[in-house]
């Protein structure tokens, strides 16, 4: 048995907890959160500068050894996502891109069709593409064929902290995808993350639940422990309660 690692593109990670930089009360908390959570991949977004209020550089809060995962948030079409991805790569020096195309402003559901189109283009350009999707098995297989490095199905709508509402759909992805399945969005508690890992997810991405906790650093640690616990439970082949009674008429009597 080799070390239990997560492979994304040409990079290998020992942590299965991806984090995000959104919604922190103070960006200074990010480095402490990263240290406590052990997270090796963190998302950032690209925005037009705000000419009025000068903000500090988010990249200064992220240590060199953590892999940047720029997202394409703000994109409403595949074309826009591709454009943002190219800029992000040139500006950050990383090939990693989380494709996030959202055309629904109310629930912030990812647009699977545009996401597939963007993945097809960016994978050909050498990006390590991580598409954020609604868990849809045929789509996930198309993304896989298109060269996605992983698929990132949502557990629940972004920022809702409602947990694994899409569990049975994610289970199909886990069962049938060859690329890693990273549950992204909606995980509000460490127990949600543990449940995702127990069912065989390869990793989880948590942002809001950590960033908006009373103590993001401690919550980062809590998620790290939950992800590791869930992963170990999965690897150990966890049991299930049996409510099965043995039927009365034997089926194998003919063999005796």
């Amino acid at each position: 048995m080799t070390d239990d690692t997560l492979q994304l593109g040409n990079k290998t990670f020992t942590s299965r907890l991806l984090t995000g930089t959104g919604k922190f009360a103070d960006n200074a908390l990010i480095s402490g959160m990263l240290e406590a959570s052990g997270s090796q991949i963190i998302t950032v977004a690209l925005r037009r500068i705000d000419q009025q209020s000068k903000t500090d550089n988010i990249l200064d809060s992220i240590p060199q050894n953590v892999t940047l995962l720029p997202n394409t948030s703000g994109a409403r079409t595949a074309e826009q996502a591709v454009r943002i991805a190219r800029i992000a790569r040139a500006a950050s020096g990383t090939n990693f891109i989380k494709i996030e195309v959202i055309t629904d402003a109310r629930y912030l559901m990812p647009d699977n069709q545009e996401t597939l189109a963007a993945t097809e283009i960016l994978a050909k350009e050498g990006f390590i593409v991580l598409p954020y999707i609604l868990p849809d098995l045929p789509l996930a297989k198309r993304l896989e064929s298109a060269g996605a490095a992983a698929v990132m199905p949502l557990g629940a709508p972004i920022g809702t902290n409602r947990g694994l509402e899409t569990k049975p759909l994610i289970a199909m992805l886990i069962e049938n995808c060859r690329v890693p399945v990273i549950v992204d969005a909606g995980l509000g508690l460490p127990s949600h993350a543990a449940a995702a890992m127990e069912m065989g997810a390869d990793a989880v991405l948590v942002n809001t639940a950590i960033a908006t906790a009373g103590d993001p650093v401690t919550m980062g640690k809590a998620f790290e422990l939950a992800v590791r616990a869930g992963r170990k439970a999965y690897l150990s082949g966890g049991g299930q309660c049996s409510d099965q009674a043995v039927a009365s008429s034997p089926l194998t009597g003919f063999l005796n």
Partner: peptide, 10 residues
Amino acid sequence: HLELIAQRAH
């Protein structure tokens, strides 16, 4: 455990 497995298979 063939009978047990058979019930589930059925």
